[in-house]
């Protein structure tokens, strides 16, 4: 009796269907996967204040005003421009290499103000925002190369902070004009 049982136990489990099961799971994960990681433009919103404070008088030379109207036209400092030029304009404004009187004396006091219309397309607004952010990123990169001869991305946190104090990112968003 015992002998018989022992013989039975030696039977192997058929692993032939293993591949089928694995394939099934594989196809499931293949279908549900979204490989492109979720990315976005990081923005810090100002805290909400039910009674908007009276805007303090800012020296006009420190503010780069970017306006996007309901026809998605870009106005920089009252002059017609376009999104493609915005990056260079912003960089030149912040650094003010020619020491112009209508641009800030130091990058520390530079402010970029964006105002859009309620009918502005989100895509155009985001492009403009992206260009201004890109301008700051490029300036930080240049500063990092000049000071530490390293890429900004590779710097430790305290060095990044130093650069950001030198060229602070200040983007102010005015309440959109109603149409």
């Amino acid at each position: 009796m015992f002998k018989k049982k022992k013989q039975r136990e030696e039977k192997e489990i058929n692993a032939g269907s293993m591949a089928d099961i694995a394939f099934l799971l594989l196809i499931f994960f293949l279908v549900t996967t979204t490989i492109n990681a979720e990315k976005g433009i990081m923005v810090k919103l100002p805290p909400w204040d039910p009674n908007p404070p009276i805007p303090e008088e800012i020296n006009k030379r420190n503010v780069l005003s970017v306006k996007i109207n309901k026809l998605n036209q870009v106005l920089v400092e009252g002059e017609e421009s376009n999104v493609g030029l915005l990056r260079e304009t912003t960089k030149e404004f912040i650094m003010n290499p020619l020491k112009r009187k209508d641009a800030p004396s130091s990058p520390r006091s530079a402010i970029v103000s964006i105002q859009n219309d309620r009918a502005t397309a989100y895509e155009v607004y985001l492009q403009a925002y992206n260009e201004i952010k890109a301008a700051y990123n490029e300036l930080w990169e240049e500063k990092a190369q000049a000071l530490y001869s390293h890429s900004y991305e590779d710097l430790p946190k305290d060095m990044k902070k130093k650069i950001q104090e030198e060229i602070p990112l200040v983007i102010s968003e005015a309440e959109p004009a109603a149409h």
Partner: peptide, 19 residues
């Protein structure tokens, strides 16, 4: 803009515009 105002009212100031 309206949604942004609401987010500010909820005091959630870290926002990412996904792209």
């Amino acid at each position: 803009t309206d949604v942004k105002t609401e987010i500010r009212k909820a005091n959630r100031l870290k926002v990412q515009y996904m792209a």
